[in-house]
Design a binder for these strands. Structure first.
Ligand SMILES: [Mn+2]
Ligand SMILES: [Mn+2]
Ligand SMILES: [Mn+2]
Ligand SMILES: [Mn+2]
Lengths: 275, 275
DNA sequence: TTTTTACTTTAGACTAAACTAAATTTTAAA
DNA sequence: TTTAAAATTTAGTTTAGTCTAAAGTAAAAA
């Protein structure tokens, strides 16, 4: 049996691999807020369990088995976040911490029940893709707003677990699925000037904020000057024939998957008032 | 911080005190399925933490602090069971094990959200009273069916965590809030003959089964020959003036509290089919 | 090439929770 | 009152996860 602690380590390694960063001892330690030495210990254990490859001094990479285990927890985490948001009336900034605990504890039955109750959703409240029960996921093509050219965009996902930060974005109405135009980027780490679609007033956000926001060119703009790059480092709905094997790079469907209906936007869809 | 394990120990001790049994090392061990020696250890720790009094060789009893902690978990357990049953579509036989884990992990926010979502319920799916947020509960006057006289009764609660057993009772339609007449008790540990209200066919259940079912005389019968005993070893809605202090013996209201709407009865109220 | 610095691993300790086996204490029987 | 049986505690281990401090390695700078 794989412990909850181990599950969080695997998830951290997966996260870094997703970011195409090396899963080094110190980065895992930083992310999990434990001492470096603790990570070394755990990585050795996880290797012995066949969940990852670990070369001392050179970091870790997941084995297929470890990747499946990590994706299982990631699925749980994201489904639970959506469940808390949609059914339990949590704000999108409140879901992460609770999910971080529940993901290890809830039964498979519970998870599948949630999946059904939410009608087999594709994305969590932050816009992250929810892997399916077999570990498949088709990742969106997106780019970090901090590095985007001027143009028309849709917010795909927001990478942050910081409640204050998420609350700020909600106040600014910068939520997954929302569209806007990037009008200016001030030099020297300066702010970005945005205009939300259907809004009159431009808004300014700091570059640090933009670093957490991932966007893709919006339909209109995409047709004109920004073609889809139709490639993903992640898995398709199953290219019949092969044994299903998650995380194989293949072309991804061009049609954007249905966005999760965004019930975060201001009050709406929140059955209870916030605490 | 009090660990989940410790919480289960406290809950076990509370359970025995509720049953007016001594919380002995071996009984706690049996209930939690751990070695006697482990219980001795834990009882010493809990005493040191001021959660219970423990005299070696003579068992334990909760302090006020320990009782509050135990009631807090009991509340969580029961609210979560009801939540799983009513909202997540679990059968009444499926809720216990999941609740046993979740009770330690969900936030207070989650618990209060569940409470509100279920509209401040009074009983769990097994008919057990849910303590309120301050640890108060008014216990029903009930008697074990195995020891009841012939007469008219209503099922108050069923004490069992065994899924097979609970599934059997559901099949027999012997669920909390259901009314029936006890027609015969065969001698020598023999079966009981029951007739459910609004049913034609009598049913026979073993004495062991009857031991898990707690009943109270039904209104009609109560008025004629079985007066309420209007006493409880548990707490009232707060006799204004004193600091609130759970678990004080006082008279309890004569009107039976609203039964939880029983959504367990055959299929009904189960949004999903069973697995 | 040598030295410094930044990472990483090793070693030794601690805490929590559990177990088994042996020693005690209590209770019940003779 | 003595003895035997049952219940409980103590002692000694084990496993998991974490920490700090010291030692080791690799990469970058001099
Ligand atoms: Mn999250
Ligand atoms: Mn977690
Ligand atoms: Mn239960
Ligand atoms: Mn429990």
């Amino acid at each position: 049996m794989i412990s909850s602690t181990a599950e969080d380590y695997l998830k951290a390694v997966l996260r870094m691999e997703d970011m195409k960063e090396k899963a080094s001892t110190s980065s895992v330690a930083r992310h999990l807020e434990v001492a470096d030495a603790s990570v070394t210990d755990m990585l050795r254990k996880l290797q012995k369990a066949g969940l990852l490859e670990y070369k001392p001094y050179y970091g870790a990479s997941l084995t297929k088995k470890g990747r499946m285990a990590a994706l299982r927890i990631l699925r749980r985490h994201r489904l639970i976040e959506l469940f808390l948001n949609q059914i339990m009336g949590y704000g999108w900034e409140e879901v992460h911490n609770e999910a971080e605990k529940l993901e290890h504890v809830v039964s498979d039955f519970f998870v599948e029940r949630v999946d059904a109750l939410l009608n087999y959703p594709v994305k969590d409240p932050h816009g992250e893709v929810i892997p399916d029960a077999r570990g498949f996921r088709k990742l969106d093509e997106d780019v970090c707003l901090a590095e985007a050219e001027l143009g028309q965009y849709v917010i795909r996902r927001v990478i942050s677990a910081n409640p204050q930060f998420l609350a700020y974005l909600e106040k600014e109405d910068l939520l997954p699925a929302n569209a806007f135009a990037l009008l200016e980027k001030a030099p020297f780490q300066g702010p970005l000037k945005l205009l939300r679609t259907n809004s009159e007033v431009p808004q300014y956000i700091g570059l640090e904020v933009a670093k957490s926001i991932f966007v893709s060119p919006s339909q209109a703009a995409a047709a004109s000057n920004t073609p889809f790059h139709s490639q993903s480092h992640d898995l398709p709905p199953q290219p019949a024939g092969r044994k299903h094997d998650p995380e194989i790079a293949t072309a991804v469907s061009r049609t954007s998957p249905p966005e999760v209906r965004n019930l975060n936007k201001k009050k709406e869809g929140r059955p209870f008032k916030k605490r």
